[in-house]
Design a protein around this nucleic acid. Structure first.
Length: 485
RNA sequence: GGAGAGGUGGCAGAGUGGUCGAAUGUACCUGACUCGAAAUCAGGCGUAGGCAUACGUCUACCGUGGGUUCGAAUCCCACCCUCUCCGCCA
């Protein structure tokens, strides 16, 4: 690495937008009806939310931002921000004054020379300022990089309808669908079922790669493929999504746009081109996508969209690669938590005023898959302490797993509002002709591996066979059951 | 892997050191003409940011990052990307 450059990701959160003090948020009552009272959009205009984490808002009402970030367990370092801002302002004003003076004098020199006049006096006046200008410019770049780094580490602000809480235990169940089946025998978990079918082999996978990989064979592999096909077909034909095939290797700017970088580099896998060393220039480095949300959402990076093109509804079936750092010992059995798994992802790019409704809609699209597969599930509104880094509001779908006697996450649907759009500079032209950040949403529709687990466990029979769900049979050449080998 | 060409505003396309943030065309917006439209004419029309209550003003941006210079789209270096031809390859 020839020169050590300050780590400044290509994107920096340049921000604009209306500044509105956030009203004190009152948590919605929890005793409300089993369906989603909590999902009612807050009365405040979406504009309020859109401005969130805009540096303008931090300048205008730092205390309010800190208070709302605190609800999700993030301690905003207000002193550091204020100090950086003070420094930035001072240096920026001085730098720009100096640049303006230099530009003006240089222009005069040009004009003088064009007229054939002597410009010595002007030259003498400007020549001494060069070093000072360079010094200030460097200083400014430095403080702005620090500020950008600071802002890139800030998580999104939760919507006011998000239940307050510290951890996953405080998530709010919004609704349930279907009833767990009662078995006339002790249900097995998918590892046992899969091995009996000769279709799941974790020993072979670990020989090839190591822990947290799976090998599927025969009918189980076919069922896995059928699930992905069924999901894609449903979303494209019935929910209005456009199917995409995307790169699985992406660059750092792309991952910064959706929020995985710089903060979560440890959760990712990366690769380099054969001849380049690990730590070569960033340009040679690729990251394996942890979800197709990354590639799909970044399609609008650095774009200004015509509003009539919105909403964009995109879907893709891709493998996802996650290092699962920090989850040692968690879900080590079976294929619940893998380094590589397939997912059909749903992404929507919408106008700011539409994103609340779009989250409900998108969550419904993911639910439709579970319903068609007749898998019992429940919907959780994640609490402030449990929502993801870039999310303003998230619903998790949890499917019933008889083998674990528990509901387990199978989809996560989030409204990121302008958070990713600001990082990506993804905008639209509004009615006033001004650029305005779009809102982005994403959700699994669904995680294919976990859906396979759910099918195996919910459709298992006492004789060790597994019934194929009705809707998948056309994808399985009419096969109605998988039998033990 | 080898050889060559190129990256400028929504698009096309000028611009090889100085009133260039950028000609011209086209698209788009406004106005005039018209019953209306077309055509024509006039004007406007990039993005981000700073300062200012505001009128406004300043800064940055011509693939990216450095460098030379009073001054860089223009000169130098590195990198990225695109295209063409040859080779190899699913």
């Amino acid at each position: 690495m020839p020169r050590a450059r300050a780590t400044s990701p290509r994107e920096c959160p340049r921000c604009r937008g209306t500044v509105r003090p956030s009203a004190a948020s009152k948590r919605e009552s929890r005793k409300s009806s089993p369906t989603c009272a909590v999902s009612t959009p807050p009365p405040a205009s979406p504009k309020t939310e859109e401005a969130m984490l805009d540096v303008q808002l931090l300048r205008a009402d730092l205390a309010a931002v800190a208070a709302r970030l605190a609800t999700r367990g993030f301690a905003l370092d207000t002193a550091t921000f204020e100090a950086l801002e003070r420094e930035r302002k001072d240096i920026q004003v001085r730098t720009q004054d100096l640049q303006a003076r230099r530009n003006s004098l240089s222009k005069q020199i040009g004009q003088a020379k064009a007229r054939g006049e002597n410009a010595e006096a002007l030259l003498a006046e400007v020549s001494g300022t060069g070093d000072e200008t360079k010094r200030l410019e460097a200083e400014l770049a430095n403080v702005q990089a620090k500020l950008a780094d600071f802002l890139l580490e800030l998580p999104n602000l939760p919507q006011q309808s998000v239940p307050l809480g510290k951890s996953e235990h405080d998530n709010l169940e919004v609704r349930r669908w279907g009833a767990p089946r009662t078995f006339g025998f002790a249900p097995c978990d998918h590892v046992e079922i899969g091995e009996r079918l000769g279709g799941l082999d974790f020993a072979k996978a670990s020989k090839l790669s190591g822990a947290r990989f799976a090998l599927m064979r025969g009918g189980v592999a076919g069922l896995h493929r059928a699930l992905a096909q069924f999901m894609l077909d449903t979303h494209t034909r019935e929910h209005g999504y456009t199917e995409c095939y995307t790169p699985y290797l992406v660059n750092a700017a792309t991952l910064t746009g959706t929020g995985q970088l710089p903060k979560f580099a440890g959760d990712l896998f990366h690769v380099t081109k054969g001849e380049y060393a690990e730590d070569e220039e960033a340009g040679h480095k690729y990251y394996l996508i942890p979800t197709a949300e990354v590639s799909l959402t970044n399609l609008v990076r650095d774009e200004i969209l015509a509003p009539e093109r919105l909403p964009l509804r995109l879907t893709a079936h891709t493998p996802c690669f996650r290092s699962e750092a920090g989850s040692y010992g968690k879900d080590t059995r079976g294929m619940i938590r893998q380094h590589q798994f397939d997912k059909v992802e749903l992404v929507q790019i919408v106008r700011p005023e539409d994103s609340h409704a779009a989250l409900e809609e998108l969550t419904g699209h993911a639910e439709a898959i579970l319903r068609r597969l007749e898998l019992p599930y429940r919907v959780l509104a994640l609490c402030t302490g449990d929502i993801g880094f870039g999310s303003a509001k998230t619903y998790d779908l949890e499917v019933w797993l008889p083998g674990q006697n528990a509901y387990r996450e199978i989809s996560s649907c989030s409204n990121c509002e302008a958070f990713q759009a600001r990082r990506m500079q993804a905008r639209m032209r509004n009615a006033q002709g001004k650029t305005e950040l779009v809102h982005t949403l994403n959700g699994s529709g669904l995680a294919v591996g976990r859906t396979l687990v759910a099918v195996l466990e919910n459709y298992q029979r006492a004789d060790g066979a597994v019934d194929v769900p009705e809707v998948l049979r056309p994808y399985m050449g009419g096969v109605g059951e998988l039998r033990p080998a």
